[in-house]
C-alpha cells in the first residue's frame, strides 16, 4: 500500500516558551527542533502498515529549508522518501497550508498513483489549528476521522478507534482515506544505524509551493499569566515523610 504522512517542524522548548521581542515568533535561540508528537506516531503507524502490507511511505512537510532535518529523521525510522515544500516567509495559516499540501499530494499522485492512506497528526504542537488534515481530506474528497488511538487496515478499509466520553468508538473508512492520529496510538521506534545511513542517501525532493492566504491571521504571541508559588521545602530525603503526611492530613486526602 502507498501511504503519505504530513509532518511539521516545531521547536522543542524546555521549561518556558520565550517569545521574540516583536512578539511574532517563538524565540528559538538555543532550542532544538522536533516533529509534533502526534505526527511522530503517524510516521510510526505508516512504518508498521508498510511492514505488514508492503508498499512504500512518503513523508511530506511544508516549512523552512531546515525542515529537511525532520524529513530525514522520518526516513531513518522507516519512510522511503521525503518531499519538502520550502517556504521562506514564516508560518502559513491553516487554509494556505492545506491548499499547498493538497496541490503537492495531487501532483505526487499524478506521477505514482493514489495514496491508499494519508496520515496527519490530530493537531500540530505549536499552532494547534485542528484542521489542516480535515481540509486536505475534503479537498481530495476522501473520508477523514481525527484523533485515532488505534489504526489498522484490512479488506480495503481503515479501522480507526478513538476515545470518547462514553468509551472507545470505532470507525471503518473505505480506502483511500485520511486519518489524523494521536500520540499513544503506538510507541515510535528510535532510528537504527542502518536507518540513519538510509536517511542520508534517500531522495528528498524540494519544491516551492504557492497558495492563497486564508482568513485567520496571527497578530502577536504572548505568554499566559505564570503561576508563581512560594515553594515550601518540607525537608530532605526520607526524613521529610512525616511533614508530607501532615500536609496530606491538612488537605483532607487521608481518609
Amino acid at each position: 500500500m502507498r501511504i503519505c504522512v504530513c509532518v511539521k517542524r516545531v521547536p522543542a522548548p524546555g521549561s518556558k516558551i520565550n517569545i521574540t521581542a516583536d512578539g511574532q515568533q517563538v524565540d528559538t535561540t538555543n532550542l532544538g527542533f522536533t516533529t509534533s508528537p502526534h505526527e511522530e506516531c503517524a510516521v510510526e503507524a505508516a512504518a508498521q502498515l508498510v511492514e505488514e502490507h508492503g508498499g512504500e511511505a512518503t513523508v511530506l512537510t511544508l516549512g523552512p529549508a531546515e525542515a529537511e532535518e525532520q524529513l530525514r529523521y522520518a526516513i531513518s525510522v522507516g519512510m522511503h522518501r521525503g518531499v519538502l515544500l520550502a517556504t521562506a516567509d514564516g508560518e502559513w495559516d491553516p487554509q494556505r497550508t492545506a491548499r499547498a499540501l493538497t496541490t503537492a499530494i495531487t501532483e505526487l499522485e499524478a506521477v505514482d498513483g493514489p495514496f491508499d492512506l494519508i496520515l496527519f497528526g490530530n493537531e500540530s504542537a505549536d499552532a494547534g489549528g485542528f484542521q489542516v488534515g480535515i481540509r486536505v481530506a475534503h479537498a481530495l474528497g476522501r473520508p477523514m476521522v481525527n484523533g485515532a488511538k488505534g489504526l489498522s487496515v484490512a479488506d480495503g478499509a481503515a479501522s480507526v478507534e478513538r476515545e470518547a466520553d462514553a468509551g472507545r468508538e470505532t470507525y471503518s473508512l473505505p480506502l483511500p482515506a485520511v486519518v489524523g492520529v494521536k500520540e499513544g496510538v503506538n510507541l515510535p521506534r528510535y532510528p537504527t544505524m542502518r536507518g540513519r545511513l538510509a536517511s542520508k542517501k534517500a531522495e528528498v525532493a524540494s519544491n516551492q509551493p504557492s497558495a492563497d492566504a486564508g482568513g485567520l491571521a496571527e497578530q502577536v504571541l504572548k505568554s499566559p499569566p505564570e503561576r508563581t508559588s512560594q515553594t515550601i521545602v518540607l525537608g530532605t530525603g526520607p526524613d521529610a515523610a512525616p511533614a508530607v503526611v501532615d500536609v496530606l492530613e491538612e488537605l483532607g486526602v487521608l481518609s
Binding site: A127, G128, L216, A217, Q219, K222, P224
Partner: peptide, 18 residues
C-alpha cells in the same frame, strides 16, 4: 479579534478571523 490557545495552553496568540 480573539485570543486563542497555542502549544496546548503554554502560549497564547492574539489572532484575527476575517
Amino acid at each position: 479579534d480573539m485570543t486563542r490557545v497555542r502549544w496546548g495552553g503554554s502560549l497564547l496568540e492574539d489572532a484575527s478571523l476575517t
